[in-house]
Design a binder for these strands. Structure first.
Lengths: 233, 233
DNA sequence: CATTTCCTCCATCCAAGGATTTACATCACA
DNA sequence: TGTGATGTAAATCCTTGGATGGAGGAAATG
């Protein structure tokens, strides 16, 4: 590893602002560790270039009018070309950052940042790491934690699922898999009428009128989570 | 802000290893910017101390036999005391890190880390930031992105939902809210028989046998996401 | 021991759901 | 202009689902 000479990382630049694109290109070209294999102002063209050249690294502006940069990232990720993508943006919007990372961006940097930082980020990402400026990673975590708050709030207070008996949970699980009475009876080795009894009890306890509502209640109130928790405990 | 004298952050320490607990306590006590208001080897006791003293900062060992530290974090977060919690762990397990951050930890540090780094992390978190050592944040992001890969893979390839007409989507949405034929007819101002027609078409297109399966297909294949995407587009 | 909870099962009845076919109006697009 | 896709609607027939009440056995709990 130490003696291995460092291959230049091949970079593709996508930014609809041609001035900015030119600027970045010059900057990156000057850098000995990178090799710019393409630069375009069109997201669609960029996707094609990515397919063609399979760069190691892609710098993608995500604030483009024509085609959403996030969508472009998603499409490239789907192609599974092994490119690592850094999102470029003018805004440190936490929702944007979150969405970019969610769909697979390995870095997120602001256009206002110093060029040295851009190069540093590119080095990091090219070497397999993930790069988020600390200011942005804070925002990211805030958003991340917010987005899970509701989910954690589940099971909270009165969750009607807690009133179900073991057998009723089994039946409900099979319901949440789309089984009808007959199928459930078969899988639990009990009669169909017994299943009906259980299902009726479930309806009473969950205060719903039919199986679909029961299934929805279960899914919306962490039924899967609850079970996972029990299993891992 | 600059002239404001910095109030000492009040800290609660929870670690079932009494030796380690004592060590941390000494270390933190020496630090002029912190005030140790409590230290205990019991998670349950720790929760009570948190309620009583409402510390600014909690250092919580998450590898405890008696009670799971993650669970303790969750309980404290539910109390909404305004404490910021740092998870302490011996392992840099990405799943653990992810779960800790998910339930609201504002930092995650390894017991093997230098004490200076611990103090730095405490300072950062106490001042409202989130702290993850860069090595761990890489792991976190890997896990984060993995956990969304499936979700992004949806809509991929053949998603039967794409074959639905606009009206069918409306009907399906009402189905996913637990409505029966009559309710749907009422909400869409069409006859019940028409709803049946649509629903039957939906079943055909989604290749399912009943409404529950249709709802499950919709939910599992990003029906909500799809709609959100359309709305924001 | 008595009581309760849970699981099992049945019968009955009615409502709702689902399959199939046919039909007509509209609209877009070739 | 007509051909296809869509949205609307109905009739029919059968299946499934859901409500209700009753009942017995097993196990736990007091």
């Amino acid at each position: 590893m130490m003696r291995e000479f460092k291959r230049k990382a091949r970079v593709l630049l996508i930014d609809d602002n041609s001035d900015h694109l030119r600027g970045i290109k010059e900057l990156v070209t000057l850098e000995s560790s990178f090799d710019v294999v393409g630069a375009t102002t069109s997201a669609n063209l960029g996707i094609n270039l990515a397919k063609k050249y399979r760069p190691d690294l892609i710098l993608m502006d995500i604030n483009m009018p024509e085609k959403d940069g996030l969508q472009a990232i998603q499409e490239i990720e789907k192609l599974d070309l092994g490119c690592r993508i850094i999102a470029l943006s003018g805004y440190d919007d936490s929702d944007l950052i979150f969405r970019a990372m969610k769909i697979g961006a390995k870095g997120y940097i602001l256009k206002t940042m110093a060029s040295a930082q851009l190069i540093y980020a590119m080095d990091e990402v090219a070497s397999g790491k993930v790069y988020l400026p600390s200011a942005l990673s804070s925002r990211f975590f805030e958003y991340f934690q917010d987005s899970y708050k509701e989910e954690n709030a589940i099971s909270e207070e009165e969750n009607l699922l807690t009133y179900l008996t073991g057998r009723e949970e089994e039946v409900l699980e099979l319901l949440t898999q789309g089984n009808n009475y007959k199928a459930i009876a078969g899988k639990l080795f009990i009669s169909e009428t017994t299943v009906k009894t259980h299902v009726n009890n479930i309806f009473q306890k969950l205060q719903v009128n039919d199986r679909t509502q029961a299934v929805l209640y279960a899914l919306n109130n962490g039924f899967a989570n609850r079970k996972r928790a029990k299993l891992t405990a």
